[in-house]
Design a protein around this nucleic acid. Structure first.
Length: 201
DNA sequence: GAGTAGATCCTCT
DNA sequence: GAGGATCTACTCA
């Protein structure tokens, strides 16, 4: 298990980073309780040019400020008052690129995840969808700005990789309001993985 | 199985 | 004061 370097996040091609993030391992360790999962679905948000992004048109507020930070930190956003979404900030300072982690394949700490989500046994919904990913891993909006190489939260490469032909792209989910940009193929996912949101297998 | 409505709260206008 | 990068459950076929 090797934590990804800041160099990985600070490249300027957010689509390439998204694609490479598939298969990596997201780990949280709050108060010694370790939970982790392999990333099987994510979406790219390409900053000021992207109508679906919070930073569209260079919009810069206290909430979105963290997207303008240099790559390698977390951006956690609360949506619909219920769901929290975990994003990876990428690119350099003043370029508001981010990647939304939408689904994981559970690895370690499944017991802990079940407890957090109130489920009795593991099924494909445990870490399916951004809201559930955050709930299962115990990620909270107060974690915004945390480094992705910190002790509590990081993304690592354990040597595993999906084959190119297992990774598919599609339009993003839940961004209909973004007009034409909602159709951009900025979503990356592992074909046939039960944890990927959308239709169950 | 598919489609739709409701939940619920922080942030920006 | 309004709306949002969602999920779930319930209805109807």
């Amino acid at each position: 298990m090797k934590k990804l370097d800041f160099d990985f996040y600070q490249r300027d091609n957010v689509l390439k980073i998204s694609e490479e993030l598939i298969g990596k391992v997201l780990v949280t360790k709050w108060n010694g309780a370790v939970t982790s999962g392999r990333i099987v679905e994510c979406e790219a948000y390409a900053g000021a040019m992207d109508k679906a992004s919070h930073a569209v048109g260079g919009r810069r507020t206290k909430r979105t400020e963290i997207m303008y930070a240099k790559g390698g930190v977390a951006y956690v956003y609360l949506c619909y008052g219920i769901h929290q979404m975990f994003n990876v900030v990428t690119n350099k300072t003043d370029t508001p690129h981010a990647i939304l982690v939408r689904a994981l394949e559970p690895m370690k700490g499944i017991e802990t995840m079940l407890k957090r989500t109130g489920k009795e046994k593991q099924d494909h919904t445990l870490t399916r969808g951004p809201g559930n990913v955050c709930k299962a891993l115990g990620i909270h909006t107060t974690h915004t700005g945390l480094s992705l190489r910190s002790q509590e939260l990081f993304i690592a490469d354990d040597g595993f990789a999906y084959a190119k032909n297992e990774i598919f792209t599609s339009p993003r989910i839940g961004v209909d309001y973004a007009g034409a940009d909602a159709l951009l193929p900025y979503r990356f996912y592992v074909k046939g993985n039960a944890n990927v949101s959308g239709k169950p297998k």
